Simulated assay, not measured.
Amino acid sequence: MQQLTIAIVPTLAAPPEGAQLVIFCDPRGYVAEIDSSMMLAAAARYAIRHKVYLVPERFIAANYLCLCLLSPQGVVIGAQRAVHLNLSLREHNYYRDDAIRPFDTPLGRVALLVDVDVNMPQVARAAVEAGATLLLSSQFIQLYDLYEDRVRYGAINAAVSNGVNVAAAAGMGGIIVRCDGRELAGFSEELPVMAALDPSRCHADRDAIAAGRRLLTRHRPLLADRPAAEGGRLDV
């Protein structure tokens, strides 16, 4: 696939013509576990009807906050549980996953970033080290805490720091960023947000990333413990 057209739309709104991958953008924090099966059934019907890949709303399953990707046949081809939780969710005692798990699709190797995981650099880096070429994020942000730069730079940092394509829905808006950090569709609350990218284009040099991490690990005691010239410590 040379070009992938991604659209971020309100939940269940018809996708723009030409969209191949749709991410639902919703104002609620998540779909409760009691309603999750009904939501996923509606999402599967949507994917089949519009012949698109679909990332539906965030939902609770087995006491985890989850996100999934459906095929145009309405089948779940990948899912991810949140590695980190929004502070507003911690009072519910939801469980957290211990790793990000990218999966192979016809769109490339995809990683799903659930809610605040898009703002955690270590999660995006782990996804890319595991081979991800496309990061898809869906996040809930309270209206009083929703501002453009928070969403923009979360997505841009994930893309440019890891050389990977990113599409992110947040609140009632979205942004699509190319692997070099260029905003193909800048953050907007005027949905749909839509852009085309080359899913095979990825700047991430995983060998270099791994070598750099090994180098930092090997020399961390020197960097962290050696007294600085002024007599202090150099913290890393």
Rank of each mutant, 00 (worst) to 15 (best):
V52K: 13
L12C: 05
M38W: 08
L89E: 12
A124I: 09
V75D: 14
A42F: 00
Q80V: 01
A19M: 10
L70P: 10
C66H: 15
K51G: 09
Q2W: 11
S36D: 13
L89Y: 15
A62H: 05
A124L: 05
Y95W: 15
V116C: 00
T5Q: 10
V76K: 14
T105C: 01
V31A: 15
R81S: 15
D97C: 06
P15D: 11
G78P: 05
S88T: 13
Q80N: 10
D104F: 08
R109M: 14
T105H: 13
M120W: 12
Y30N: 09
L85R: 09
P102R: 04
R45S: 06
A99D: 14
V114F: 05
A42L: 04
A19C: 12
V123N: 00
L4N: 03
I77H: 04
V83K: 02
E91F: 07
H84G: 08
V116P: 00
L87K: 14
A19F: 03
I6R: 02
A42K: 10
A62V: 04
L40N: 07
A19Q: 04
P102I: 01
C25H: 02
A61Y: 03
Q2C: 12
A42S: 06
P106K: 13
A14M: 11
Y95A: 05
T11K: 13
A43N: 04
M39R: 02
T5E: 08
Y95H: 14
R45Q: 14
D98K: 05
L65P: 04
Q2K: 08
R81Q: 14
A32C: 08
I60W: 15
P27Q: 06
V76H: 10
L4R: 03
R49A: 15
R81K: 15
P102K: 00
L69Q: 05
I23K: 04
C66P: 03
V123P: 03
Y53Q: 13
M38A: 14
A32M: 07
